[in-house]
């Protein structure tokens, strides 16, 4: 069931607040030029998408000012993750965006902010490239090593944030060449912070296990024994101040975690049994998943 290519994704991770730099300005040299595969052509607001040689419209300038809007702490926190796979064409990547607690609404753009809805921005090296709505598309990354990020934005283009820090996910890729990869001698299953079973989205999760690892201790929401039924969809979200991997045993799913990336694991618990979820390197126990 686990598509190896998917699991082998070169670094897909959620980075809440990876960078505190503002959106920055549109610059042509970091332009992701060709994005023909999504429904971009239908948009009224094409300025973002096909914006050539710095020919900005006013909306873009508004986008770029780095305004943030804190999410309502009483609502579920919007989350974003992404999967990037390099295609046959050098520098062109398939992008899949995974959203949790966030609705993309093209029709309300430029309107008033509505909690947990809006659109996304693609950023390269901290600079905004374009606004987009599609969860699957292709992007082109210029030659060399670049940081690709996705940001969640409200209808008024301010970035959703937590305590002023924008909600973003990001990963470093090498455009027009090979994507970066940690050559630690293996573990290609896990080079990123998200391991998401094909066809699943965060909204499918029947159970979510949320844990924070800080200063050597695990803070788990709820009981450390999590009972689910066979074929339930399980989401595991882990934040950590130490770089490690989150491992769901048995199912053998790994996801990177660290101070700059959260782990997100989403899978169908289709095999009964008791499965430990722990930090792989330190062996620190997170929770026990009991599938029956």
């Amino acid at each position: 069931m686990w598509n190896n290519r998917l699991l082998r994704v070169l670094g897909l991770f959620i980075a809440l607040a990876a960078l505190t730099t503002a959106c920055g300005s549109d610059t042509p040299d970091t332009q992701s030029a060709d994005t023909p595969t999504d429904d971009a052509g239908d948009h009224d607001d094409m300025g973002d998408m096909d914006d050539h040689a710095g020919d900005h419209d006013d909306m873009d300038d508004m986008d770029d000012h780095g305004a943030t809007i804190d999410v309502d702490p009483d609502l579920p926190i919007p989350e974003v993750a992404m999967i990037l796979n390099e295609t046959e064409s050098p520098g062109v990547f398939d992008l899949k965006v995974i959203l949790a607690n966030f609705t993309v609404t093209e029709e309300n753009v430029d309107g008033d902010p509505i909690d947990n809805e809006g659109h996304m921005h693609l950023l390269i090296d901290g600079d905004k490239v374009e606004r987009f709505y599609a969860l699957e598309r292709q992007i082109t990354v210029p030659e060399g090593e670049h940081l690709v990020e996705i940001e969640l934005n409200s209808n008024d283009h301010s970035a959703y944030s937590i305590d002023g820090v924008p909600i973003r996910t990001g990963m470093t890729v090498v455009g027009a060449g090979e994507a970066t990869h940690d050559d630690d001698g293996g573990h290609d299953h896990s080079a990123g912070g998200a391991a998401i079973e094909e066809g699943l989205a965060a909204a499918d999760a029947d159970v979510t296990i949320t844990a924070t690892f800080k200063a050597g201790t695990v803070d788990l929401e709820g009981d450390d024994r999590v009972d689910v039924e066979v074929d339930d969809v399980v989401m595991v979200m882990v934040t950590s101040d130490v770089t490690d991997q989150v491992h769901v045993h048995g199912y053998n799913i790994l996801a990177e975690v660290g101070s700059d990336m959260n782990a997100m694991i989403l899978f169908t618990a289709d095999s009964p049994g008791k499965f430990e979820i722990e930090f792989e390197a330190s062996g620190t126990f997170i929770a026990e998943l009991v599938v029956s």
Partner: peptide, 13 residues
């Protein structure tokens, strides 16, 4: 554990 997880015992009922 990282090799075998909760491989000990039974997964069935």
């Amino acid at each position: 554990g990282s090799l075998l997880g909760h491989g000990v015992g039974s997964r069935g009922t």
